[in-house]
Amino acid sequence: MSAKLLAVIVVMGAAALTLLLIRQLRIEASACSARLYQRLIENEHTEWKLRSEIAARSRADELRRAMAKLGGSWAPIPFEAAGGDQP
């Protein structure tokens, strides 16, 4: 009798622990998801900053300076080869 009672208590305790564990895992998954969402937002902001820096560094005068450093002679791509007068 006492063995059975003990067994019931142990099983109920194990079930409760399992439920707590599942709950904890769920909370951790939510927390991970929330952190990832915030990291996505931060990465987005970093991307905006990089876009802005790339735009500043690819100005015509910057490119001309880079071309001058590379040396050689440069010529525009012929008009027809570049698509002609297509909009």
């Binding site: 902001h45 905006w48 876009r51 802005s52 790339i54 735009a55």
Partner: peptide
Amino acid sequence: NRTIATSRL
């Protein structure tokens, strides 16, 4: 497609 104006933080 060069950037004329863009937004950043």
